[in-house]
Simulated assay, not measured.
Amino acid sequence: MTTAVEAPPRLAARGVTVRFGGLVALSEVDVEVPAQSIVGLVGPNGAGKSTLFGVLSGLLKPTAGTVLMDDEDVTAATPQARARRGLARTFQHPELFSTLTVREHIVLGYRMRHSKSRLWTDLLTGGGFRRPPAAETERVDALVDALHLGSVQHAPAAGLPLGTSRLVEVARALAVDPRVLLLDEPSSGLDVRETEELATTLRELVADHGVSLLLVEHDVPLVLGMCDRVHVLDFGVLIAAGTPAEIRDDPAVRAAYLGTALDDEQEQA
């Protein structure tokens, strides 16, 4: 009888430690993002969440430990090399081009993956965005609809509300068709309705397109409501990892800092 071989995680950190002088920002942290899953990373300010994101995306080299993509060591790989392997990310503070419209940002993401030559001919030479191929239009339209950006798709990014800017950044990241997407505080600045719509959209993307998500969030109810697994950091140490139900009932997690948030989440359930 043959035994099915479990697929390796799309992205993993093994024993990652980061020191800044005498400060230990991360201590032997293990995190896995399986294929077609949503994984949450929570913790208070200073817990090491942003540091771990920097290590996973290649912006920061760990003092010790390994980063793997599909079981291949990418610890020394540049952010660009990891992007070519299918890693994309958003940032805590949206990084948009003020003169480009919402739709042009999504087109930019699409062409970074599918038509890099047109980035030069259409943008850098001042020619603007020429008539796009049908596949590009279909993909961009789908993302505009999914993120509810239709009413602002032709508006410049300058002056957009923070919540809308975050949705634009998420749409641009998704336009490169990543295998793994790192989302840094995706719900920050969104109202309750926008947060619910974003959660629904992300679940659909995982189910329909097979992308894997790792999100850092302060919205604990959102994380516990949409994630398959949750990792909890405190002062650079991974104090818990498990299903939302396991995290919700973990005494160490409640004692550390999540008791009130967990009680709020249970009341909303």
Score class of each variant (00 low, 15 high):
A77E: 11
V211Y: 08
T243Y: 10
V55A: 00
G259P: 04
S117Y: 12
L52H: 04
P244T: 11
A47Y: 02
G163E: 10
V192I: 15
L222R: 03
F91N: 02
H93L: 02
L174A: 06
T125G: 09
A77S: 13
A47C: 02
H218E: 04
A88C: 13
R111C: 11
G40N: 02
E95K: 02
L149Y: 13
L238K: 10
M226T: 14
P221S: 00
P251N: 09
M69F: 07
G128N: 13
F20R: 12
A4W: 13
G225M: 06
L162Q: 10
E104Q: 11
R179D: 14
V168P: 04
G43F: 00
E217I: 02
L68S: 02
T260H: 11
E217C: 03
V107K: 07
E72S: 15
P62C: 04
H148E: 15
L258T: 03
P44L: 09
P8V: 04
S165V: 02
A35Q: 14
P251E: 08
T200P: 00
L143Y: 10
A173H: 07
R179W: 10
A142T: 15
T63N: 06
R113H: 07
V152I: 15
P244K: 07
D263E: 11
H148I: 15
E185Q: 01
Q268Y: 07
R130A: 13
E104Y: 03
L59T: 00
E136K: 13
R10Y: 01
Y110Q: 02
A13Q: 08
I38P: 04
P94L: 05
A269R: 14
D264K: 14
A4C: 14
I239T: 06
V253E: 09
P133K: 12
T66E: 09
L214P: 01
G86A: 05
V152Q: 12
L214D: 02
A25T: 10
L56N: 00
L160C: 08
G189Q: 14
E169M: 01
T78V: 06
L190V: 07
Q153D: 14
V144Y: 08
A157Y: 03
G189S: 15
V24A: 14
L56I: 01
R172F: 05
G22Q: 06
V107C: 09
R248W: 05
T164H: 08
G40P: 07
V223H: 02
Y257F: 09
H114T: 05
L11D: 03
